[in-house]
Design a protein around this nucleic acid. Structure first.
Length: 442
RNA sequence: CGGGGCGUAGCUCAGCCUGGUAGAGUGCCUGCUUUGGGAGCAGGAUGUCGGAGGUUCGAAUCCUCUCGCCCCGACCA
């Protein structure tokens, strides 16, 4: 993409409404614009990142055996009255009346709807287990939206649901999602630690919040430092082998990790040696829980068993805040100059800077590099605008692409271009254009 | 939902107290000069002063109402 043709309205100054760093940087980098309180438009650069995150989430859900579907944003109030949540949800639920005076709502979540879909399509234990998910916009009419996309009213969320015949099977589904979450966040370059969460009326140990460690996080967290060295991507996971899955879950649950709500200082000190005690801040990016028959009973999602009994299905639900992750990743990865994207979610892999557009040789060299990299399938943001060098550097640092390929007349005279890694220590490597391409492609 | 604050140029903000022809920086446009970390000079365009009422000869400024947005707290993917 040539930046001279790209709609990326960056800002030199920070709009005053933005307080936290991810919000400031997203506005400055031209990723989003606020449409109204807690509601954002995603501009091309931001939307690219959102889609990358969404795709990683999708791939890991698919790998864990879940099937994607798509439910609507607008739902009928009827189902919510059946589950009792039409009253319980309160003012957070955006209620709408259509032209026929029917009560509708903009879905804050989808347990009711998915349960209805399931009950209409599955009647027997033979139809189980099932795992379904979708990635859809939700709306919760927060009293006080804040932190940009980290806590908007409208947000993109992946929510998955499991349907099983009994508790043990439900537990296995839960564990698969647990592992899928670890992999999902790790692929985005995040340290996400599963922490015990309230299980509500169900009890048991089947609820975890996944917390990304970030200085600017909203909740205080306490955990064993050992977690920082855990590597789930290196683990050999076979989702069809429950022992393999359980092994990973155990590895991530046998050490202390709690948010301030659940924190027990005495227990923390007892279980974790002082040098391994980590206290910091974090952002909740995922929440999984098993809730048994909470919805299947009132909504009548029953299946027949081999003995010809009729039992309500055991369910769990598993959420990932997709749009929140965009902010969360920035909170966890930035410096004074701007964003530092992990490569897996970066809007482009390489920022190609043409330092002197007016210089024919320089521009020819840049055009060639742009062509070669693009042909090799590398996503390149090519800054071919007629701007000063300083402006280009500052802008490229701001949008945070992993690699900067800097081409100027001075270097070209010596047959070299410069390659800089955004997240690195700022050092530039001088090498021939061919070598630079080889390095970026390889 | 309690408490606080802010709405003036695309962005950051001054002007308001003490009413009298709407400003600066930055960005934008034009030209020239520059060119390796948000360049210099010269010229230029840009506003229903959030909205509605009111007071006044006269309102960005004073009064009333209203809308929007932000921050702290309580609440949340």
């Amino acid at each position: 993409m040539r930046l001279s043709q790209y709609f990326m309205p960056t800002l030199k100054e920070t709009p005053k409404e933005a307080e936290i760093v991810s919000h400031r940087l997203m506005l400055r980098a031209g990723m989003v614009r606020q449409a109204s309180a807690g509601i954002y438009s995603w501009l091309p650069l931001g939307y690219r990142v959102l889609r990358k995150i969404e795709q990683i989430v999708r791939e890991e859900q698919d790998a864990a055996g879940w099937q994607e579907l798509l439910m609507p944003t607008i739902q009928s109030a009827d189902l919510w009255k059946q589950s009792g949540r039409y009253e319980d949800y309160g003012k957070e639920m955006l209620r709408i009346t259509d032209r026929h005076e029917r009560e509708m709502l903009y879905g804050p979540t989808n347990e009711e709807l998915i349960t209805e879909i399931f009950r209409n399509g599955a009647k027997s234990y033979r139809d189980l287990p099932q795992g379904l998910y979708h990635i859809q916009w939700k709306f919760r009419d927060e009293v006080r939206p804040r932190f940009g996309v980290m806590r908007g009213r409208e947000f993109l969320m992946k929510d998955a649901y499991s349907f099983d015949i009994d508790y043990e099977a439900g537990r296995r589904a839960y564990q698969k999602q647990f592992v899928a979450y670890l992999r999902t966040f790790a692929r985005m370059g995040l340290k996400a630690i599963p922490m015990e969460a309230d299980t509500g009326p169900i009890g048991g140990d089947l609820s975890h919040e996944f917390i990304v460690l970030a200085e600017t996080g909203e909740s205080e967290v306490f955990c064993d430092r050992e977690f920082l060295d855990h590597d789930v991507l290196g683990a050999d996971v076979d989702y069809d082998d429950s022992a393999s899955v359980e092994k990973v879950v155990d590895y991530y649950t046998n050490l202390y990790a709690r948010t301030d709500e659940k924190h027990d200082q005495a227990l923390f000190e007892k279980e974790v040696p002082s040098e391994r005690r980590y206290t910091g801040r974090g952002i909740e990016v995922g929440h999984i829980f098993f809730f048994g028959t909470k919805y299947s009973e009132p909504l009548g999602a029953y299946v027949t068993t081999p003995d010809d009994d009729s039992v309500p299905v055991q369910m769990g639900s598993y959420g990932v805040g997709v749009s929140r992750l965009v902010g969360g990743i920035i909170e966890a990865s930035h410096d004074d100059n701007g964003i530092i994207w992990p490569e897996a979610v970066a809007p482009f892999k390489v920022g190609l800077i043409n330092l002197r557009v007016a210089d024919a040789d320089c521009t020819a060299a840049c055009d060639k590099l742009y062509g070669q990299l693009s042909e090799a399938g590398i996503e390149v943001a090519y800054d071919d605008r007629d701007e000063s060098a300083g402006a280009k550097f500052a802008n490229m640092d701001l949008i945070g692409l992993p690699w900067q390929l800097v081409v100027g007349p001075r270097g070209l005279k010596n047959g070299v271009v410069e390659l800089k890694q955004r997240g690195g220590n700022g050092e530039r490597e001088e090498l021939s254009p061919e070598a630079a391409v080889a390095k970026l492609v390889g």
